[in-house]
Design a protein around this nucleic acid. Structure first.
Lengths: 221, 221
DNA sequence: TCAGCAGTATTCAACCTTGAACACTACTCG
DNA sequence: CGAGTAGTGTTCAAGGTTGAATACTGCTGA
């Protein structure tokens, strides 16, 4: 669980679907295509949920479901705070060699309010500007380095430029009212293949068993 | 040591500087700026070298250096083969969310012969073409997905395009005789700050102690 | 001269990740 | 009905990673 992306993804999945069990989290993440880009495997999900529980970010209740016991997770206030912190970090920090955290944060966009998300993206652009100002490697350093290093630098600079330009496009879309964020009415419904639908009955059972209040859509600080 | 990049980097460093001890590897990697982009820490270097030794890719000799003992690593034939395999994989496989392996393979360019490296890059371009052909997500799927997913797809496509175009540029440079590869005479010398220089005496001592033949520049299959 | 600091070289316990395997339920098809 | 297959939900031992800590050497300067 060093991997920040895994924490973020797990907290996000619980916030979206709580009360939820480990297998449901797994299925939902798989349906997002996370098997391809998120490098997550069954073991990490369960151990990740256990770690987050130990740290107080999640709460685990073992419910009797007929003859067997199911571990059902809900988020705590600290968990929500941790999620907001991790998401902000993933959105604001620029690391060309590890774009996974940013991709993860993009996929969790519906969990956050529009203005909060936009502010994080603006902070990311500021960070880009700082990096561009800082340390343009001296001509001397360039000439002393082995000849393939300038090529690597060039690739990094192009990658950074792409990231910056794309974030500007996304920000423009968000500021002009595009996309759907937490706390906003939406006419979009998950497709029938999405396990989110199949989870409905179980979620209701879990809610009843835990004595939780009705729906409550996930919103953000 | 699941992380392929770490294996690649460690094998590469040993191939470049053998016979070499763990601390020298660490310093050399730090001087490449790997602290920033390669996420490597002292512990992983030593445990990585131990794992590679256990797997037969490296050989460890404990040399007496005055009153203390130093663990000195050299590569085995299997280690060289493993390096070539890992490098090829890193160069040929396209993973937009994890470019680190490709970056690592770029930094190790001087360990491989020109034609071998170019062939790997051509294979990478072929892979790009395959990915572009495969699975253009259906219009239906796009409309059913939550509205931010098309944006993620767009970012991935742009990232892939950048990678492809940049590899084409690099390949052109290589095919026209640019850069310096294994087995080619070079007038480039490492800058004085490079720990490679400071290592000279110790390498010589290690070579003598191990009864190894003179220099021998690292070449490739 | 010797305290103290920087540098060299490595280890290790705590923690995390991996993925195979387990145990169970539910369906399906002859 | 009963065997086989697919799906559900989770655990666990083996192994990897982390980074603080260790222990030593050599230099510097009061």
């Amino acid at each position: 669980m060093a991997a920040t992306e895994t924490r973020l993804l797990l907290l996000g999945a619980v916030l979206l679907f709580e009360p939820v069990n480990g297998y449901q989290v797994r299925r939902e993440l798989l349906s997002w295509g996370v098997e391809e880009w998120g490098r997550i495997n069954p073991g990490s999900i369960y151990s990740g949920l256990a770690t987050l529980t130990k740290q107080g970010h999640l709460r685990r209740d073992d419910l009797r479901e007929g003859s067997r016991t199911v571990a059902v997770y809900t988020s705590t206030a600290e968990g929500r705070a941790e999620f907001d912190r991790l998401l902000g970090e993933a959105l604001e920090s620029v690391d060309i060699t590890a774009p996974l955290a940013f991709h993860t944060a993009l996929s969790l966009l519906p969990l956050v309010r529009r203005s909060v998300y936009a502010d994080h993206l603006r902070a990311r652009l500021k960070r880009h500007a700082e990096l561009a100002d800082a340390a343009p490697p001296s001509e001397l350093a360039r000439r002393m380095a082995p000849p393939h290093l300038p090529w690597m630098l060039d690739l990094w600079q192009r990658s950074a430029a792409l990231d910056r330009e794309w974030v500007e496009l996304l920000l423009a879309e968000i500021d002009s009212g595009g996309l759907m964020f937490a706390g906003e009415p939406t006419d979009w419904l998950p497709p029938p293949e999405d396990p989110g639908w199949e989870m409905h009955d179980e979620r209701q059972r879990y809610r009843d068993a835990l004595g939780l209040d009705p729906p409550a859509s996930p919103t953000s600080t």
